[in-house]
């Protein structure tokens, strides 16, 4: 199989190693909820094929748990002179470049698990809905600093719409 895509240049900045926990908890919770629904359909409603769904859900959840560390490690960003690079994904890779001047606003979100671990998600919003640059799992102080830095860069490179 040919090599995955990569961009030459400096090292990618990775998200906090603790972010793996958030991914694992997320997959576990969704796996447990889905299995509960499947079990209920199987045992309470009495549809016999539901056990196949249950097995599938358990298998998918286990695979997700196994690749969780790699998924978390695949997320990276790089701040170049004029734009922010963002990448994520192992199987389905995605590389995005956003010029700083295109920033409309920056969101910082904290989920329940992330808050316990002191992590925050940073979202870079442009006028295009499909940009979708969201850097998860940043330590809270880093997220704040990165936000201020990005706003400052956007100010100095302000462009129209």
């Amino acid at each position: 199989m040919p090599d995955p895509l990569d961009l030459p240049g400096e090292e990618w900045k990775r998200v906090s190693p603790k972010y793996v926990v958030v991914v694992i908890v997320g997959s576990l919770v969704s796996g447990v909820v889905m299995s509960a629904i499947a079990t209920a359909i199987w045992l309470v409603v009495g549809l016999s094929w539901a056990w196949i769904a249950l097995v599938a859900i358990v298998v998918v959840t286990i695979i997700q748990l196994i690749i969780a560390p790699r998924r978390a490690r695949s997320i990276g960003y790089r701040m170049r002179d004029d734009d922010l690079l963002f990448r994520r994904g192992i199987m389905f890779q995605r590389f995005v470049s956003v010029p700083y001047g295109r920033m409309q606003l920056i969101d910082i979100n904290r989920g329940p698990v992330g808050r316990i671990l002191g992590l925050a998600d940073l979202k870079f919003v442009t006028a295009a809905a499909s940009t979708g640059v969201s850097i998860p799992g940043l330590p809270e102080a880093d997220a704040g600093a990165l936000r201020d830095r990005l706003v400052e860069l956007a100010e100095s490179r302000r462009a129209g719409l």
Binding site: M1, L5, M91, F95, S97, V98, P99, R102
Partner: peptide
Amino acid sequence: LQSLEVDQGPIERMLRLASAALH
């Protein structure tokens, strides 16, 4: 241009292809 994206899925990777989108 607002931003720029390059994607690659498993089949594209096997064929050494990729797709690009301008936002």
